[in-house]
Every structure is written in structure tokens, then in C-alpha cells.
Computed example of a mutant assay.
Amino acid sequence: MYTYMNFQTRIAQTKPSTLHNQEEKCPFCDRETIFKEGVVISQDGPFLLIENKFQTLEHAYQMVLVETMTCKDDLSTYDKPHLHALFDFAMRNWMSLEASGQYRSVIFFKNHGIHSGGSIYHAHMQLVGLADVDYRKHLHPEQWAGIVIDQAPGVEFNISTRPRGGFTEFNIVLSDRNALHKMAEYVQIAVHFLLNHMNRRYQSYNIFFYEYEGDIIAKIVLRAPGSPYLMGYSIIQVPNNLDETVRRVQSLYFSDAK
């Protein structure tokens, strides 16, 4: 049922945390040092894919995708050219790592906020090459099925009726890679809704990306203190107001929604 990986606690204890200490210097704003250290794997304009200096997982290679030059912006506020270019860069590097044959699988995700498992405020994503683990063996199609909020050729935006972790999860299912930019816009809408309308108290979310049977899926998850039902008993709670949430998103972001 579960996959276990060893976590290097001593390395983790040395990591900076600008989420918890705003006086701490942001390592991703200091590009001069990043380039001096020789950890840049790929670059395109403001986007960097760099080696994670804190390799906390055994049998894995951890990388960070830096999304912006400074700490000012986040995914919910990017203009469309920046948003589209970010997803182009991220997808290109993710697929290249998957095709390299170096890893059993490559996981791709984003943390935002103190409840997300992140430590750095500066907008970034993470790519992790797993030597021995194929994350796909834990995936099931029902996990990204749901009530449709909006759709366009090659991509669907829905709210999950069978969430992986419980409560509110949005899914964007990309079946045509040419619709990647539309997928990016749907992801941004989901993130903006979570931060500004769904639950302003916690201001935390994760985005998990999956490749499954030819589709690319993005799952956007509202993060808050963990449910004891899930942690203790693997019982997943599903809200009884999903239809209401769908109508709220449609009224806010899709004015022509019926």
C-alpha cells in the first residue's frame, strides 16, 4: 500500500526556512551565488532548474525549479506570458528527465505555504528523480475524475469526487499536449480560488503532477492541518457541497458558465 524512502534528518536540519524566518536570506534570490556554485542544470530567461543543495532522500536526485527572479510574485498572479513560459520550461525539463533513462520515475510537484511541506517562500517547484520507485503504481483513474467546472479541446478542469487526501482537490487533465497553456491557466485559476476565496486562513496548497496513460494530470490540493481520519485510519472525507464550489468557481472565473 505504501512506499517508504529514507529521509536524511541531519541534512534537513541545515536547510534554510524563509517561510518561518523572514529575516533569513532567500537562497533563490541570490542568483550570483547560484551560478558560482555551478548547480544550474537548465535556464530559460527567469526560470532556473538547479540541483537541490539539500539532498534529503536516499536513492533520489532532488532538483528545484525557480519560477521568478525575486520573491515578489507567485503563481496566482503571473501574467499569461510568464505563466505559459513557466509551464513550457517545466514540462520540457520533466519530460526530458523522464526520457533520460536515469530514473525509474520523476515526480514533479509544488509546495506553497507553511502547511504544504515547504520551507522557502520564493516561488518554486520541485523535480525529483527516483532511482527505485515508480510513483505511477499508486495512481488510479478515479482520483482525477470529478464534476466538470470547465473544459476546452484537449483539457478538462474538474473538482475531485474521489480525492486522494480528502476535502477540496481540483484536477486538470491534459489529453492533448498542445493545450498545455490552457492547462496552465486552469491551474492558476484553481490556485487563485484556493488562496483568495476557499480558505484564506491557511494560505497553503500543493500541486502534484502525474503522467498516466498518455495524459498529464495536475492535482491542486488545499492544505491545512492533517485530518486524523486520514492519518490514523485512511478514511478520506469528501465535502457534501462540491456542486456549490463548482458554481462559485464558474461565477468568479467563467462569466459565461451556465
Rank of each mutant, 00 (worst) to 15 (best):
K36C: 04
V106E: 01
T70C: 07
S96Y: 06
R92P: 00
E58T: 12
L97A: 07
N52V: 05
S76I: 10
G45M: 02
Y78F: 15
H122W: 02
G38W: 07
P81G: 14
P46I: 11
L75F: 11
T68I: 08
T33K: 10
F47N: 00
C71P: 07
N93C: 00
A60Y: 06
I41N: 11
K72G: 07
A99R: 11
S42G: 04
K53C: 10
S100T: 06
D74L: 03
T70W: 06
W94P: 03
Y78R: 06
Q62W: 06
H112Q: 11
N111Y: 03
G113F: 06
G101A: 07
M91H: 12
F87P: 08
H112K: 09
N111V: 08
I41R: 08
F109M: 04
F35E: 07
L65T: 14
L57Y: 11
R92F: 01
M69I: 14
L75M: 07
F47Q: 00
L83T: 08
D73I: 10
D79K: 15
I34S: 05
K110R: 13
H112C: 02
N111D: 05
M69E: 13
L83M: 05
N93R: 04
E37I: 03
T77W: 03
G113C: 09
G117R: 04
Q55T: 05
R31C: 07
S100N: 07
K110Q: 10
I114Q: 08
E98P: 00
N111G: 10
S42D: 09
L97M: 13
Y121W: 06
T56I: 15
N52R: 08
D79N: 11
F47W: 00
H115Y: 15
L49P: 00
A123T: 11
I50P: 00
Y78A: 14
T56A: 14
L65M: 14
M95G: 02
F87G: 08
F47C: 07
E32Y: 05
N52I: 13
M125R: 05
M69L: 15
P81Y: 14
H122S: 04
H112G: 01
V40C: 01
A90G: 11
A123L: 03
E98R: 08
I120D: 01
E58L: 14
M125H: 12
T33W: 01
I34N: 00
V39C: 03
K72M: 13
H112M: 08
Y121N: 10
Q126L: 03
R104T: 12
G113P: 02
Q102L: 13
H59P: 12
Y61Q: 14
M69T: 14
K72A: 15
A99Q: 10
D44R: 04
V106C: 04
H112N: 12
N93W: 00
F35Q: 10
A85T: 14
E98F: 09
I34R: 01
H112D: 04
L86M: 09
P81C: 05
I50F: 01
A90K: 08
M125P: 02
I50R: 01
H115E: 12
R31L: 05
G45I: 05
M125V: 01
E58N: 15
G113H: 03
E51M: 10
I107D: 01
R92Y: 02
